[in-house]
Design a protein around this nucleic acid. Sequence first.
DNA 1: CCTACCGATCGGTAGG
DNA 2: CCTACCGATCGGTAGG
Lengths: 184, 184
Amino acid sequence: MGRKLLILDRAVELASEEGLEGLTIGRLSSELGLSKSGLFGHFGSKEELQLATVDAAARIFFREVVEPALEKPEGAERLQAYCHGFIGYLERKVFSGGCFFAQATAEFDSRPGVVRDKLQAGQRAWIRELVRNAELAGAEDPEQLVFELQSLVMGANAADQLLDDEHAFQRARSAMDARLGQLL
Amino acid sequence: MGRKLLILDRAVELASEEGLEGLTIGRLSSELGLSKSGLFGHFGSKEELQLATVDAAARIFFREVVEPALEKPEGAERLQAYCHGFIGYLERKVFSGGCFFAQATAEFDSRPGVVRDKLQAGQRAWIRELVRNAELAGAEDPEQLVFELQSLVMGANAADQLLDDEHAFQRARSAMDARLGQLL
DNA sequence: CCTACCGATCGGTAGG
DNA sequence: CCTACCGATCGGTAGG
C-alpha cells in the first residue's frame, strides 16, 4: 500500500505540470523505474489512475490547507485561515506545476465523465465549507463573499504561474482581508 | 488565405475543449475533411499550429470584447466596458469549451516555450490596457484594482464551467461594479 | 492539396 | 511485479 502512495505522489506532481491527460502510464512508470504493465496493474485503467491521483491531491490539500485552519474557531477566523492557507500553499509551491486543481479543472471542465464529476464534487464541498463559515461569521451575502474570495485565489495562482507576478499573493491577501475586515 | 482562417476557426473551437495539446493534427484534419499532410502543410509544425491558433483566438477576443468597449471614453467607463464585455463573452459561450485563454494558460503556464511566451505577452498587454484605464479613472491602486477585476473574470469562468453555477456571471458583475463604483 | 510511409508512444492485454 | 505484444494514433517526411 505504501508503494501505491509513492506512485501517487509522483503522479500528482506530474499531473500538476502536464495535466491529468498528459500523465501517461508509460512516462510515470519509467520515472518510477518500473514497467508499464507493473504500474498499470495497480489501477486497471488510465481513468482509475486519474481518479486516484485526484484523491491523492485532495489529501495533500487537506493536510496543507484545511487541517491547519481547523485550529481556528468556526466563522470569520476559520474562513480567513482557509483563504490565507490556500494562498500560502500556492506560495510554498506545494505542487511544482502550480495548483493541481486549477490545472485539472481547466482541463476537465468541458470533458464529461467520472473525473470531472469527482473534481466538481470536491470543489462543491470546498465551497460549501467556505459558505458555512461565512454564514456563521454573519456575512451579508455568504455565497457572494465566497465567490469573491475563491476568485482571488484563482487570480493569484494565474498571475503567479503565467505572469510571474510576485505581488500576486500579497494582492490576493489584502483584497481578502478587505472583504473579511468587517466580519473579524 | 480564407482556407486557413476556416481551419483556425475550428482549431480554436477544438482547443477550447481539448486544450492546445489535445488539438492534434490528425483529429483537426479529419474534422475538416482533408488529409493530415494537407493540413500540416499550412503550418509546418504542431507548434506553429498552436501559435496560429492562439493568434486566431486573440482576434476573436478583440472583436468580441475589446472593440465594442472602444466606443466608451477612456478611463472608468471603458474599464467597466472591458470587464462587463469579458463576462458577456463568457456568458454567450463564444467558445464551446469555455474561455480559450483560461484553458490555454492553465495548460501552458508551467510549460516553457514559444506558446507560453505568446500567451504571457498577450495577457500582459491586456492587463496593461486595463491598468492604463484604471489610472485614467483615478484609481487609488490601479494594479490592485485590475488584479481584483481580472480575478473575478476567472472566478466566473471556473464557476460556470466546472460548477454549472448560473449565478456566477451576475456575482462577478456586481462585485466588479462595487469595485468600480466610486470611479464612475 | 494527396497517398504512403516513418519511428515513437499511447492505453491496454496475454501469459507468466 | 515482469516481457512481449496488440491496434491506434501521434508528429512529421518523401515524393508527387
